[in-house]
């Protein structure tokens, strides 16, 4: 607890002032990197445990207490593994691709307000930045699939391109619906607005629809089942990362889980009031906000895991049908409804 407060103090001392020194930036970056590497690993563990509980299994329970150190051991194994690849691969792009994926997902984490003060960088176009940065990740997948000179990888990568480009629209539009209500793209302000009630309550019907669309599109954007066209184990083996091994594979793997966390964190911030708790507890004791935020996020992460372990996979053309024939028209209508609600002041305020 002591160290946490120290870190907290460190952030509190740094963030309000303009970030000036390079050492400070590097330090923040390193701390974030450390925290989120561990977070990613524990998300993997959580996924494995949750999957096991859905499937009447026990899950990892050998390494550490109830398997708590399992993913650490896995990471150690992945680090020590030989990096293999195909001979005719485009070596430069092949090596570059994992970094695209992992860096973009780590960049996105920087702008989340974990508490009122604990935020690495409060960008005034935060939401826009998130949408933008999450579309860069797909370039890494495309590059990885294309450059590894494997036919299954190429099919996976092309599917990924199709999928992410389509579902970007729904993610963007469903968030835009909420922006009509918040009137700001800055994440800290979006949270501030919710002091009068979560946005999903404020915006009622259109907000609930927007949330559902966002969760569907968000799941699709992270390439998770039921939208895991890109990996599609039973169709493509391992899809775009068939030829990757060791740490490079771990980057892809970790990025998938951090992306899932990001989608859940966006939903928490935009729909469920971020770090805000009832009765203003987190305003008087700011560091509780981190836990409040994480609790909400992990519930949404669990929801995504629940999807994954229940539903069959869509086919690639049905994936596009769902986006272009269902989600997009619903979204467009939804925006108009939301605009009308904002215009007529029909939102629910406490």
């Amino acid at each position: 607890m002591n160290t946490l407060i120290n870190i907290n103090n460190l952030f509190l001392s740094i963030i309000p002032a303009e970030i000036t020194g390079l050492p400070k930036m590097a330090m923040i970056a390193l701390i974030y990197l450390g925290i989120f590497a561990v977070l990613g690993l524990y998300l993997v563990l959580l996924e494995r445990k949750v999957a096991a509980w859905f499937q009447l299994r026990l899950g990892p329970n050998r390494v550490g207490y109830h398997g708590l150190l399992q993913t650490m051991a896995d990471a150690l194994k992945l680090v020590s593994k030989e990096l293999t690849g195909t001979v005719k691969a485009d070596k430069f792009l092949y090596n570059l691709a994992p970094y695209f994926v992992i860096i973009t997902s780590l960049m996105a984490l920087g702008i989340f307000p974990f508490t009122q003060k604990l935020q690495a960088y409060d960008l005034n176009i935060g939401l826009f930045f998130l949408i933008a940065i999450s579309s860069i990740g797909v370039i890494g997948i495309l590059l990885g699939g294309w450059s590894s000179n494997n036919k299954f990888s190429l099919i996976g990568a092309m599917r990924s391109g199709v999928q992410t480009i389509s579902y970007e629209l729904s993610v963007g539009l469903s968030l835009l619906t909420m922006v009509l209500l918040t009137q700001s793209l800055q994440l800290s302000e979006i949270v501030e607005v919710q002091k009068n009630g979560w946005l999903i309550v404020q915006g009622h019907i259109p907000a609930i629809i927007a949330f559902m669309v966002f969760m569907i599109a968000g799941t699709a954007e992270t390439n998770r089942a039921p939208f895991d066209m890109v990996e599609a184990e039973s169709e493509l083996g391992a899809g775009f990362h068939t030829e990757y091994s060791g740490m490079k594979f771990a980057y892809f793997f970790l990025a998938e889980f951090i992306n899932m966390f990001i989608i859940a964190a966006i939903a928490t911030t935009v729909f469920f009031g971020g770090w805000l708790s009832p009765f203003g507890v987190t305003e008087s004791i700011p560091w509780l906000g981190v836990f409040w935020f994480l609790a909400k996020t992990f519930i949404l992460v669990f929801l995504m895991m629940w999807f994954r372990w229940t539903f069959p996979r869509l086919r690639v053309d049905q994936l596009l049908t769902l986006e272009w024939k269902y989600l997009l028209p619903i979204n467009l209508v939804n925006i108009v409804i939301m605009a009308v609600i904002v215009w007529l002041n029909l939102s629910i305020q406490f």
Binding site: V50, W53, F54, Q55, L56, W306, W309, T310, F311
Partner: peptide, 9 residues
């Protein structure tokens, strides 16, 4: 479908 898996969970 989710209710089935949820029950087992």
């Amino acid at each position: 479908g989710m209710s089935v898996t949820g029950k087992y969970f």
